[in-house]
Amino acid sequence: MAFPMGALVTTSWLFLVALVPLPNVHANSWSHAAHNMVGRRNKMVSISPNSPDRVSWPGPWAKAHATFYEGGPRSFGGACGYKDVVKEGYGLDTTALSSVLFKNGQTCGACYELKCVDSPQWCKAGQPSIFVTATNHCPPNFDKPGDDGGWCNPPRQHFDLAKPAYLKIALYKSGIVPVQYRRVPCKKQGGIRFTINGNPYFNLVLVWNVGGAGDVTAVRVKGNKKVINWTNMKRNWGQKWESTDMLVGEKLTFSVRASDGRFSVSRNVVPSNWKFGQTFQGKNFT
């Protein structure tokens, strides 16, 4: 999804809820189971390859199971804060993750390759791969055992796929299938997007369209007048990051750290006359 250079302004009716627990917006899947302006000096800096957070690409194959859930572009991005997974470039090849994989929202935006395996009755012929982005959370169902309905209960690694993605690898009637999966790099068009919502006393920034590792582990912000030093933003939920600094009227620079340890610094990416509800485009990972 290509965007023109310059400010990307989006109309936002999102209201701000500060310090409120994340609502459970994931649709139930059990009935089926018996996703500006680019600063001239933007740059990306790599850290030591020995960083404990560094991810190698692609990752090793591991085993899990997959189910699917109904929904649409506005619901498949629920627990990660993505408003519309199609408009935001993730498409419908998305997945909700069990808590073990979701990691309280830290894995939002990560990309995976999945294959249906060991179930010739239900897997699509040829075992095609799908590439999906983590955009939602599959909550535990402790009323049912992990091997009979409680598919997302800890410590299970489980993918609750958006229905269109599931049907690319398995038959509808299967409900649940064994899969192999691995982390893969995310390929995105354009830069990282920063959508700013809130009020003069509380800023809530959605960080999306992140390439490379895809998932964000830290965000910092600074301005050009009063907030001249880097300020660490706090994860509010999913990939929404909060700051209580007075950022209105400041030209903003963001630093984004991904789970592979790399930083992307988008300098002066937000002009001083920015408004809440606007989206700006910075430097992406490759």
Rank of each mutant, 00 (worst) to 15 (best):
G77D: 11
W151C: 03
Q189S: 08
F159T: 14
R182H: 03
C116A: 13
V221M: 05
G6F: 00
L161Y: 02
P52A: 00
P271M: 07
G39V: 06
A110F: 09
Y90W: 10
P128V: 10
R235H: 09
K240L: 14
F276N: 02
I47T: 14
C108A: 08
R183P: 01
K124D: 05
V85M: 08
Y201S: 13
G198E: 03
G39I: 04
V86K: 06
I192Q: 04
E113H: 10
Q180Y: 07
W57F: 15
K168C: 02
G249L: 01
V205P: 10
V210M: 06
V17C: 01
P185R: 12
D118I: 00
Y181N: 01
N104E: 09
D143N: 09
G71E: 11
G126R: 08
S272K: 07
G223F: 07
T94D: 09
A7E: 01
S259P: 01
N268C: 04
K168G: 00
D245G: 04
A165R: 11
N197E: 09
S48D: 15
R183W: 06
G39W: 09
Q278P: 02
Y166T: 13
V55H: 13
T279P: 02
W208C: 06
S266Y: 03
N268W: 04
A218F: 03
P49S: 01
L114Y: 01
S119W: 07
K163D: 12
N229S: 13
G146F: 04
T244K: 15
R183F: 06
F285W: 05
N229Y: 12
W241N: 00
D93L: 14
V210H: 09
T95Y: 06
F276Q: 06
D118A: 15
S98N: 02
Q127N: 15
G91Q: 10
H32V: 01
H26N: 09
W13H: 13
G150V: 11
L252K: 06
R235A: 04
K283T: 02
F76K: 04
I47C: 06
K188F: 02
V9W: 03
K163Y: 13
R193L: 10
M37C: 09
N36S: 11
P120T: 00
K225C: 00
L161Q: 10
N104D: 10
A96V: 09
Q127S: 15
P140Q: 11
G261P: 10
L171V: 13
K222P: 04
R262S: 09
N268H: 09
F159M: 14
G146W: 05
G149L: 05
T135H: 13
R182N: 04
L167G: 05
S46M: 05
K87M: 12
S264C: 05
L97Y: 01
I47W: 04
A134W: 12
C116Y: 14
D260S: 09
K144L: 10
E250Q: 15
N232M: 07
G105R: 12
V55Q: 15
R267P: 01
N42P: 05
F15P: 02
W57D: 11
A162I: 10
E70F: 02
T107H: 10
V248W: 04
A34G: 08
D160T: 13
K234T: 15
V256M: 08
